[in-house]
């Protein structure tokens, strides 16, 4: 990801190279989708933790609902990321 940022900012050709790779290469798309999905889940679960730090939903039921919500939202974001990458 860092390498792509470096190359894409280095020059016009570098930008085109990264853009081209991301459009054609199946593997690049898969890696990007994987990272975006992991980030989406981590972000949603992180927000859940921040909410729990505020003493919200720290009961047994609250924990269950929080977990289900996290999975549901993450699943949606993963699909959206997939649509966006492909």
């Amino acid at each position: 990801m860092f390498w792509a940022l470096d190359v894409s900012l280095s020059s016009q050709e570098g930008f085109e190279a990264v853009k081209g790779t991301l459009q054609e290469s199946f593997f690049a798309k898969l890696v990007l989708w994987g990272m975006l999905s992991a980030l989406a889940y981590h972000l949603v679960a992180g927000v859940k933790h921040l909410i729990m730090d505020l003493d919200i939903g720290v009961t047994l039921e609250g924990g269950m609902r929080g977990a289900q919500l996290t999975l549901a939202i993450s699943a949606i974001l993963v699909v959206l990321a997939g649509v966006w990458v492909w």
């Binding site: 894409s8 900012l9 020059s11 016009q12 930008f15 085109e16």
Partner: peptide, 9 residues
């Protein structure tokens, strides 16, 4: 495009 992308940073 490159101009927007590099412009951002």
């Amino acid at each position: 495009d490159y101009a927007t992308w590099s412009g951002l940073f």
